[in-house]
Amino acid sequence: MIDANSVPEKRLDARVRNYQGNVIVGSSVAAVELNQVALRIWQLVDGRRTVAEIGAELAQEFDVEAGQATEDTRHLLGELEEIRAINVAPATA
């Protein structure tokens, strides 16, 4: 279960393709097309930031409410975890 304190990390076997700006992240299971916000979330996933921290960055960059941004982040990361494009660990600190 992903929560605000979870720390997502890209799996190194996740495949990324950029078809003229349309970015698709895939794995051996399935693929997900990323819209502009989803792409930014993918870029912010670095194995160090928590879901809440990614949400906070998004809120600032896209001028949306932090709680909603964190929820959107959690939702997308759930999809990416399901297709095995990321791993999610609980916060260590």
Binding site: L12, R17, N18, Y19, Q20
Partner: peptide, 18 residues
């Protein structure tokens, strides 16, 4: 190895097919 694989993945995002 893991660091270079990460770099490859990041570069894949920047490479436009088409």
């Amino acid at each position: 190895v893991r660091s270079v694989l990460g770099a490859c993945q990041e570069l894949s995002l920047e490479i436009s097919v088409g």
